[in-house]
Amino acid sequence: MEKENRFWQIVFLSLPMAVFVILIIWPLTSSFYYSFTNWNGFNSDYQYVGFDNFIKILTDKLFYQAAINTSIWMVAAIFLPSLFGLVLALLIDSSVPGGSIFKSIFYLPICLSAVVVGQTWVWIYQPDWGLMNTVIGFIAQEKFNYAWLAKPDTALGSVILAWSWQQTGLSMVIYLAGLTSISEDLIEVCEIEGASTWQRIRLVIFPLLTPATVVVIALSVINSLKGFDILYIMTGGGPFNSSDTLAMHMYNESFKKYLMGYGSAISVVLFLIALTIIRIYFKQLKKVDEIYG
């Protein structure tokens, strides 16, 4: 019986394992392998170059620019949707009229693909007839013309706003679930003890939303690390690499300059960064678990 079970366990596990190996493990190990070569992505006559690609990273100014942009991107892409999501969740939870309709509307963007979101926002930012400039022009009562995505100062920020717009719905839904799991008694204690709305949010609700915040941040970290498509659609890393992130830089080096070996080395570094962040995250998760169970 035991033996038969084992057989079926292996059979059922083999298919997902095969998918996992082909789509994750194999490309991952390949990247590690190619990061030590000068492969251009086509020819088979590449050489082993040792740590050359990694040494090149150290002197690559564009890499540093991309690393700084990635940091800005990640911090903003984690912080803004979480904050907006929390505020929306608190508003909807306070039984605002039509709350459930707003909930659906705010959640909608997360159902769209990043390409669709990116293209929509490209139109919103369009200098001549885009919604953004039209609204600003309407408020300022004079024609406003600004190329949000074409100026190095605003390109990254503009994409971050578009990204936040899409991601807010997800964190809102998670926070809403977190809010419903807060015991009504605890809120009633606040009422009896005389907590103001702000005290209630700061001292009770926000700390009790820690498990939800952990999930929101985890998803934001993972999503922002993967955040490539929306940047690709909206700015392609430009102008002048001002919105170039590590993922974008890796893509440009690998597929535009045909330096697959060097691109792989960048991807390995990105992988190690992600691994470190995830390790820190899991350590924090353990602490949260001890308090909230």
Binding site: S183, D185, L186, V189, I192, P207, L208, Y292
Partner: peptide, 20 residues
């Protein structure tokens, strides 16, 4: 009057202690 203005204290069945 609001609960806090009544100068009462309440003990709940669930204890209602803040876990954090």
């Amino acid at each position: 009057e609001a609960p806090s203005k009544r100068q009462l204290a309440m003990v709940f069945q669930s204890y209602a202690l803040f876990p954090h």
